[in-house]
Design a binder for these strands. Sequence first.
DNA 1: CCGTAATGACTACGGATGTAATCGTATCGT
DNA 2: ACGATACGATTACATCCGTAGTCATTACGG
Lengths: 122, 122
Amino acid sequence: MAERISDAEHAVMEVLWDESPLTAQDVAERIPDTRDWSANTVKTLLGRLLAKSIIAHEAEGRRYLYRPLVKREDYVAGESRKLMDRLFGGRLSPLVAHLADRDALTAQDIAEIEALLKELKA
Amino acid sequence: MAERISDAEHAVMEVLWDESPLTAQDVAERIPDTRDWSANTVKTLLGRLLAKSIIAHEAEGRRYLYRPLVKREDYVAGESRKLMDRLFGGRLSPLVAHLADRDALTAQDIAEIEALLKELKA
DNA sequence: CCGTAATGACTACGGATGTAATCGTATCGT
DNA sequence: ACGATACGATTACATCCGTAGTCATTACGG
C-alpha cells in the first residue's frame, strides 16, 4: 500500500485529485503545459500508478476511467511528515521558523496561522 | 550548482553537517546503524557528492578529508520550499494547518510559533 | 467491408539511485 | 624487503524514473 509516488506520477495524481474519473486522454489534456508530455507518457504513468494500486480503473466501453484510490489528504500528510521528520527532527516549529525567516509569509498568512493556533489552544 | 541530493546522499550530508572535515571512514562510522551500509557504499556516495560539487575534499596524507560546500540551511530551505510549492500552492498556512491538524502540537510548539509570528509582525 | 484512428499493452532506453565488489597502489608492521 | 592492509578509483548491476515508440485490437467513417 505505501507505494511511492514519483514526481511525474504526482503530476498525474494532481489531475485526478482535481477531477475524476477521467479517461487517459482527459488526463493528458489536463496535465499542465509546462510538462510537455506525449499522450503515451501519460498512459505509461497511469499504468505505473495502477500497478502500484494508487489509482484504479473501470472499463467504460473500450477504454478506461481512472480514479484515485489514495486521498490527496493522505498523500500530502505523508509527504509533509516525511519532510518534517527528515529535516526538522519531527518538530513543526523549526519548519515554520525556517520558512518564516525566508520571508515566505504574508500578513494574511500570519493572521491565519495565529487564528489556527488560537483554535488549537481552546 | 543546483545539483540534486538523493536520499542516500542526504544521509552522508547529515553526518558532514554535524561534523567536518571527516575522513571517509569517519563518515561511514557515523552513518546511523539503521542504514546498514558497507564502507564502500559510503565512499561511492562521497564520490558522487564530490562530482556534484556538494562537498569538497582536501588531501590529508594519503587520504582525504571531506567537508560540505552546501550549507544545511540552504538545503533545508530549498526542500521546504519545494514541498510547500508542490503541495500547498506555495503558502505556508495550509501546511501548518495540515500538520497541526494531524498531530498534536505541544503547548510549547504553539508558544514558539506564536512568539515567532509576533516577532515577524513587529 | 475496409482503411484509419483511437486505445490499451508491451517494449525501449538513457540516466539516476542504492548498494556494493574489485583493482591498483601506497603504507605499515615485522 | 614482503606480505597484509588501508584507501581511493573504477566498475558493476539491479531497479526506478522520465520519456516515449511500437503493436495488437477495436470502433468508426465512408
